[in-house]
C-alpha cells in the first residue's frame, strides 16, 4: 500500500478513511457494512473490538504511519480506562498533531 512519507499534511477525513480501512481489514468487510463507523465510534463499546483485534489494529497503524508517529508509545501512556474509552477521533487527532 501507499507509503506515507509525504510533505502534505493529511486531513482528518483522510486519516479517518485510512483508519476505517484498517478496521475493515481487522473485523471483516461484511461486518463493517452493517456498522455506522464515525470518528466518535469507540473501539470497545461501538465496534465491539476485543483485545486481540485492538492489538491487530494498532499493528496496522504502526506499520502504516511508521516512524512518523510513536503510536505504541502514545497508546502505552493510556491506562485501562482510557483504552476502554478510546475513540477513533482520539487517534485521528494524535496522528494530526504528529504531522
Amino acid at each position: 500500500m501507499d507509503q506515507l512519507i509525504q510533505e502534505n499534511k493529511l486531513s482528518k477525513e483522510e486519516i479517518f478513511e485510512t483508519l476505517n480501512q484498517f478496521i475493515t481489514e481487522v473485523i471483516g468487510e461484511e461486518f463493517v457494512e452493517e456498522m455506522d463507523i464515525t470518528p466518535a465510534s469507540s473501539f470497545t463499546k461501538d465496534l465491539e473490538m476485543d483485545s486481540i483485534e485492538i492489538v491487530a489494529f494498532s499493528e496496522k497503524v504502526k506499520n502504516h504511519f511508521g516512524p512518523n508517529i510513536d503510536f505504541t508509545g502514545w497508546l502505552s501512556n493510556m491506562d485501562l480506562d482510557e483504552i476502554i474509552q478510546l475513540k477513533l477521533e482520539n487517534i485521528i487527532n494524535y496522528i494530526q498533531e504528529c504531522q
Binding site: T44, E48, M49, D50, S51, I54, L80, D81, I83, I84
Partner: peptide, 8 residues
C-alpha cells in the same frame, strides 16, 4: 462482561 472491560 466482554472484551477489555472484563479485565477491569
Amino acid at each position: 462482561v466482554y472484551g477489555i472491560e472484563s479485565i477491569k
